[in-house]
Design a protein around this nucleic acid. Structure first.
Length: 300
DNA sequence: TTCCAGGGGTAGA
DNA sequence: TCTACCCATGGA
């Protein structure tokens, strides 16, 4: 096993809370190793597929590369940089949530918990992976999302050189290489299959620069418009993708949001979406994080 | 068997 | 902009 990589998060940081933040850790090719309290991920570098084991505490994140039958050999300096960049992106190590935590401190009470490092919601190394996964959360229960992502990874992900069972998240090219009908037959995505295939095709063809979008400084409404241009991405999915990009001003109004807000803030009575949204209006650009902290602290 | 999920596309107003 | 209606799939 190569020497572990060590990364320094911007405090406050809570590794376990970040890993468990919104279910993404349970979607292939990620997995939670409860015994080690580690995120395991089959990860595709530019040149090869490796296995990552990510652990962490308040001051440090460690990335180990568990060996499998001699793989991986030592990483090149460029590969070590790739790993660091990917993990830092996934855990949002550099993200500045000072403004959000200041508001939580002001609110006090149960919100004060968040100042200990809540708000870093786990994401994927690429917006392509996050966009596919987000489309696969729509109009389906969580178990269905997990199944669909797993099938996609098993069918189209590049295998680890020493273990065919370990597969990385598929590249846009790998998905686009299958014709749409064959793609639909190989993975049970239902009516979402054409959306995922078209997204992969556009990204592979260079028609859609998703990663550029993720790093752009466009105002949120423009960014939202661009995301809504992806077939399969509606209001909920766009809000989710904005969150994954690091924009928290738009709320993901879905069945979870509606039932939670009704239960927590309206005594269980269903209310119009506008009224439900208004609950988090005071949080301004931090609405999404406020909703998510409220939800995760009051799941019951 | 029926219902519906971490909704979205489309047509028609 | 808003409203019906349809959409594949599998778990509850």
């Amino acid at each position: 096993m190569s020497a572990p990589l060590r990364l320094r998060p911007t405090p406050p940081f809570d590794f376990a809370a970040t890993a468990a933040s919104h279910g993404w850790v349970a979607l292939a090719p990620n997995a939670w190793d409860a015994g080690r309290e580690a995120i395991e991920r089959v990860h595709r570098l530019t040149s090869r597929v490796i296995l990552l084991r990510i652990t962490g505490g308040p001051d440090e994140v460690r990335v180990e590369l568990p060996g499998t039958d001699g793989h991986p050999g030592p990483l090149t300096p460029a590969e070590r940089r790739e790993v660091r960049d990917a993990v830092a992106h996934m855990l949002r190590l550099d993200e500045d949530l000072t403004g959000f935590h200041a508001l939580c401190r002001e609110q006090g009470g149960p919100w004060a918990v968040a100042t200990r490092g809540l708000g870093r919601l786990l994401r994927s190394p690429t917006l392509f992976e996050d966009a596919v996964k987000t489309i696969l959360t729509t109009n389906v229960q969580w178990g269905g999302t997990r199944r669909m992502v797993r099938e996609l990874v098993e069918a189209f992900g590049e295998p680890h050189p020493a273990d065919d069972e370990l597969r990385a998240f598929p590249t846009p090219e790998a998905i686009a290489a299958a014709d749409p009908e064959a793609f639909s037959e190989r993975v049970g995505l239902g009516y979402r299959a054409p959306y995922v295939h078209e997204l992969a095709r556009r990204v592979a063809a260079g028609e859609l620069d998703l990663e550029g979008l993720a790093g752009s400084d466009l105002p949120t409404p423009s960014l939202e418009r661009e995301l809504r241009g992806i077939r399969g991405v509606g209001p909920y999915a766009a809000a989710t993708l904005l969150m994954l990009i690091g924009r928290y001003d738009v709320l993901p109004v879905d069945s979870v949001f509606r039932s939670f807000v009704a239960r927590r803030h309206f005594g269980g009575e269903a209310v119009p979406d506008a009224e439900a949204r208004a609950v988090y209006e005071p949080w301004g650009r931090w609405r999404y994080l406020a909703y998510w902290v409220d939800l995760t602290q009051n799941m019951r």
